[in-house]
């Protein structure tokens, strides 16, 4: 017999997304309230501008609403799906802007901040703490390559140009960084 939700028990993420898909206003409101901090935070981390981050975050919720029926729970949790949408939209924006302004400044500081993380989160999430440790252990050149790609939308060729290294070196650094993080996740049973 299926377990029933208590009246005071909040709806799950997937249930809210289903409500969003069928234009349930209460579900839509709850969905936005639940995820707006993470979505706006991710958008802000990538764009560095609150105004632009809000536009990205609004677009992300609009896209989530439009494509809610396409969500496949087998691929991952709702939050990860929503953050993927956010990242893609933010990459569009930072790439368009980068054509006019030099970017990349602050990349190392951003990674250091991520690696430290809020103390509360580090305590609350063991998996997050382990990933942070893996981030902190990356060699500086791999850290920069990773942050430039993940948070500034740089391709390996653009990383190579920014760092003054050959394309192959930039690709190697990026791949090495990602592989190390993957290993840290694998050791905690995350990932395929």
């Amino acid at each position: 017999m299926a377990a029933r939700r208590r009246p005071d028990e909040p709806l799950g993420d997937e249930a809210l997304l289903s409500g969003l898909a069928v234009n349930d206003p209460d579900a839509a409101t709850a969905f936005v309230r639940r995820f707006q901090g993470k979505v706006f935070g991710a958008a802000l981390a990538m764009t560095g501008e609150r105004e632009l981050a809000e536009e990205v975050a609004q677009q992300a919720f609009e896209r989530a609403w439009r494509h809610a029926r396409m969500y496949d729970a087998r691929r991952g949790p709702v939050q990860a799906w929503l953050l993927t949408i956010t990242r893609n939209l933010a990459i569009d924006q930072v790439r368009a802007r980068r054509r006019r302004a030099s970017e990349g400044a602050g990349a190392v500081e951003q990674l250091a901040s991520l690696a430290r993380g809020p103390e509360m989160e580090a305590v609350a999430s063991d998996s997050g703490a382990r990933l942070r440790r893996a981030l902190a252990a990356l060699p500086p050149e791999q850290s920069r390559a990773l942050v430039l790609a993940a948070f500034r939308g740089f391709s390996a060729a653009e990383v190579a140009e920014a760092e003054g290294v050959p394309l192959g070196t930039a690709k190697t650094r990026l791949r090495a960084a990602m592989s190390k993080l993957r290993a840290s996740l694998a050791s905690q049973g995350v990932g395929p």
């Binding site: 706006f40 809000e54 990242r87 991520l114």
Partner: peptide, 25 residues
Amino acid sequence: STVGDALFELVPPVEPPVGFESRVA
């Protein structure tokens, strides 16, 4: 891709500007 997802999970939430929810609605 799982690594990329996990990386973004580390980004701390930030309260959006006042009125964000109504603008999304």
